[in-house]
């Protein structure tokens, strides 16, 4: 089966990559580019640790064929904020004790971002946040502090609370 060239924009940077048709986006990110912030686990869209944003929407990169993102824009956790300029979600996760082992956290943060960006400025309920995060399993936290963090970040992103 023939290799092909993939053109994709990842975190604002254009990449031209030689891929096998059956490679998933997760394989390309981790195995080919070496961006390890996107995690791997179940590989069947059950756990959510591989979540990335495709044109701003959260998707499971473990079952997304890389060839299908030709010409499209991907955001990974590395593209969200850096240690000096944390995204409000990243800052809130730290402040609210929402991070334990941390393996699910990139996926959790990107799932939350996708959800909050659907209705900018609107403060979601805790139940709505839980629904939005249900596709990402966390075994450490019991989710409560993650919900706290997303709720706080939503307020901050809506400009209702200044970023400290």
């Amino acid at each position: 089966m023939s290799r092909r060239i993939l053109n994709v924009v990842i975190n604002g940077e254009r990449h031209e990559l030689l891929i096998e048709p059956h490679w998933t986006l997760l394989q390309v990110l981790r195995g080919q580019i070496g961006m390890m912030g996107t995690k791997e686990n179940c590989l069947e869209a059950e756990c959510g640790v591989c979540t990335v944003l495709l044109e701003g929407k959260a998707v499971n990169s473990c079952i997304l064929l890389a060839g299908q993102v030709e010409g499209r824009a991907i955001t990974t956790i590395e593209g969200l904020g850096d240690p000096e300029h944390l995204h409000p979600l990243q800052a809130a996760f730290i402040e609210h004790g929402a991070v334990q082992c941390g393996y699910c956290i990139p996926g959790m943060i990107l799932s939350a971002k996708s959800f909050l960006d659907e209705n900018p400025g609107r403060q979601p309920t805790r139940q709505e946040i839980r629904e939005a995060l249900a596709g990402t399993l966390c075994r450490c936290t019991g989710y409560g502090k993650i919900v706290d963090a997303v709720a706080a970040a939503a307020q901050r992103m809506a400009g209702k609370e200044p970023t400290p």
Partner: peptide, 16 residues
């Protein structure tokens, strides 16, 4: 106090 490894974990830089 916030955990010491938090920033690495929320930015994807923490290596597992």
């Amino acid at each position: 106090l916030p955990r010491m490894d938090g920033i690495g974990k929320v930015t994807g830089k923490h290596v597992y």
